[in-house]
Design a binder for these strands. Structure first.
Length: 320
DNA sequence: AATGTGAGCAACCGCGAAAAA
DNA sequence: GTTTTTCGCGGTTGCTCACAT
């Protein structure tokens, strides 16, 4: 089953991308918008398979991607969402709009898994709340060891609250990109954020605004001219992952996720509150973001707390 | 200084789902 | 309704770099 490899053609290039290839891809997306990846190699002259082009764009060239160290808040969000959703990296990434699913997956595999293992072996306090969940491989095995206890609820609550507390200064600082050095080394190009900054700078400079607006990409609202990454871009703007989460909610919690947006005056909550239409989470039209507020609101209120306390994953093995 | 080892991450592969023919 | 094509996701690989020996 499944489709055969799309890149078995002779002459298809593999391996790290060069600046020239990135420029070609960016030019194409700037003109046509992301999508129709099949046409990219022929229209751009890139000797890459369409899959590789999509991946390069999604994981690296796409505007709004934050690179570098994960913050404590991001880490907590990942841990809690992984415990809730399993290895649904795309769904998790929709709640961390500046991070790609690949990044989150890598971070989980290289950092958080080890942390989990360490915590499982040790007997110390678990500040992330991952101890106690059999979160490793949770969705494939379906083996959740026990009911959630009140400690778990409190930990989840704390983690979510922490995650929603955004340090404005810190986040802006971490989003700054740097001008590319003139002595770039081709071999390390693919891991050079500076190169992307340079490419995007040229791209934005040469791009009429109307093109971006008409693009079917979800990149509306970008402000790349000063290279300050914003939280306005999200792959969930396509509405896909948000719906997935909504469905997961319905199946998990047994009722429609028809929450009202929070009345919270907190800027972050307001800025990221999606609308919920017919049980589907719709990204905020102005920000393109799905929000944690639905999850957060429900999880933190008494109804969610009670449900989680009494919920047994053993009795619901097919949820994830 | 040379070599070995492990961590981190970009990119690839294979699969399933959805869309198109 | 069936087959083919395309897209997107999650798992895995392999390259690069930093650090230890």
């Amino acid at each position: 089953m499944g489709r055969p490899p799309c890149c078995d053609k002779v002459g298809v290039k593999k391996g790290p991308w060069t600046p020239e290839e990135d420029t070609m891809l960016i030019s194409y997306v700037e003109e046509h918008g992301p999508g129709n990846w099949r046409a990219v190699p022929t229209k751009t002259g890139l000797r890459r398979c369409s899959k590789s082009c999509r991946l390069r764009w999604t994981n690296y060239l796409r505007p709004g991607i934050k690179r570098g160290t994960f913050t404590d808040n991001e880490e907590k969000m990942i841990v809690q969402l992984q415990a809730l959703l399993g290895n649904k990296w795309a769904a998790i990434a929709s709640y961390l709009p500046e991070r790609t699913d690949n990044d989150i997956k890598n971070y989980w595999n290289t950092h958080l898994k080890k942390k989990l293992k360490k915590l499982e072996n040790g007997s110390g306090h678990d500040p992330t709340g991952i101890n106690g969940y059999n979160s490793s491989n949770s969705h494939s095995s379906g083996q959740w060891e026990r009911r959630l206890q009140s400690d778990d609820i409190n930990t989840a609550k704390q983690a979510l609250q922490d995650a929603l507390t955004i340090d404005e200064n810190k986040s802006h600082l971490s989003h700054e990109l740097i001008v590319m050095p003139s002595n770039y080394n081709g071999s390390s190009y693919a891991s050079s954020t500076e190169n992307i900054a340079r490419l995007l700078k040229d791209w934005v400079k040469n791009t009429p605004k109307s093109d971006h607006q008409e693009s079917k990409s979800s990149s509306s609202g970008h402000n790349l001219s000063d290279f300050t990454m914003t939280m306005e871009y999200s792959n969930c703007a396509e509405g896909k992952t948000g719906i997935d989460l909504s469905e997961a909610f319905e199946s998990l919690f047994g009722f429609e996720s028809n929450f009202e947006s929070s009345n919270n005056s907190d800027d972050f909550s307001r800025a990221t509150s999606p609308s919920v239409v017919h049980g589907e989470i719709k990204p905020d039209p102005t920000t393109g973001l799905a929000s944690l507020s639905i999850l957060e609101n429900w999880l933190l209120d008494d109804q969610g707390k009670d449900y989680l306390r009494n919920f047994s994953f053993d009795e619901n093995p097919n949820l994830f």
